[in-house]
Write a protein that binds this DNA or RNA. Structure first.
Length: 277
DNA sequence: ACACCCTCCTGGAGGC
DNA sequence: TGCCTCCAGGAGGGTG
């Protein structure tokens, strides 16, 4: 599942590959992938626009266009943005191609998604889609102090809070579990009950975990690929996610899987202490 | 405010 | 081997 490091990797590669290119034509093969506007309007309005750059906000890919506008893409579980692949993506031999953007030079840009959860948004004002997102965890504004302020006012369980994109934007199931292990904090702890030392550890852990994953071009468990179709190598560095029953790298005790807020959650019960306040 | 459940969607894993 | 059921999960919606 692409989270912040995976989207960051995709954005950097796409930025290098498609900046300056013009979208000559868009072909939408599965209408529901276009969240806004209508499919007709999307195909009509995106044609002829030039890509000024590709960025990331939270888990959104963000293509700035000229004439001014924004193409926002959320890959959800299994979405991919690919510049590699068949010479004719319209041939119909791949049932998971949902949008093909034909560029004025080079390979077309394809949106491919097995599970069909991903969505595209073409908007004049990016805040229409991104407006509700919380802090960007790799920005200068994301300090230990700021994290402390966020946590101190909420009594929710830590894990669902960290997954809430309105609070912090970009973390998903893998990197929340990894960050909490790194910080040695139990996912069921109440946010408002963390001590200053724990807040500082969590802040540092989020930076460490996300930074390492970006260096490794993301975690490929099954579906995630870069735009060139390559896998990310961060999977070999995961400490807890998907490692139920395997020994903790710090203490040797078996990693445990529990369910928190309907999400599979991996932790070391020895290192990550008591679940209660 | 917060916990919980459902829906979307499919391939893969597990059970027998 | 084959079939059947269940499960994973990001986000948005609804309910208690």
């Amino acid at each position: 599942m692409p989270e912040l490091p995976e989207i960051e990797t995709i954005a950097r590669i796409l930025h290098a590959q498609v900046t300056g290119k013009t979208i000559e034509r868009a072909r939408v093969l599965w209408p529901r992938v276009i969240a806004t506007p209508s499919v007709d309007q999307f195909e009509r309005e995106i044609a002829g626009r030039r890509i000024l750059g590709v960025m990331r906000r939270g888990k959104f890919l963000w293509l700035r266009l000229d004439p001014p506008g924004h193409l926002l893409v959320h890959l959800r579980m299994t979405g991919r943005m690919l510049t590699c692949g068949p010479p004719d993506p319209m041939a119909g031999d791949d049932p998971y191609n949902h949008v093909v953007l034909e560029l004025d030079s080079g390979a077309p840009l394809r949106f491919r998604d097995v599970r069909r959860f991903g969505r595209m948004y073409l908007v004049a004002d990016e805040a229409q889609v991104l407006g509700g997102l919380g802090l960007e965890p790799l920005s200068p504004e994301f300090t230990a102090e700021q994290l402390g302020v966020i946590l101190s006012s909420r009594r929710r369980q830590l894990k669902p809070l960290l997954l809430d994109q309105r609070v912090i934007a970009g973390l998903g199931n893998i990197y929340v579990d990894e960050s909490l292990w790194e910080a040695r904090i139990h996912p069921l702890r109440r946010a408002s009950c963390l001590g200053a030392d724990e807040v500082a550890r969590l802040h540092a852990a989020i930076g460490t975990v996300l930074g390492r994953a970006i260096v490794n071009m993301g975690t490929t468990l099954r579906d995630y690929r870069t735009p060139e179709g390559r896998e990310g190598s961060n999977g070999e560095f995961l400490a807890v996610y998907g490692r139920k029953g395997l020994p903790c790298g710090r203490c040797g005790q078996p990693i445990v899987r529990i369910v928190v807020g309907q999400r599979g959650t991996h932790l070391c019960p020895t290192c990550q202490g008591a679940p209660l306040d």
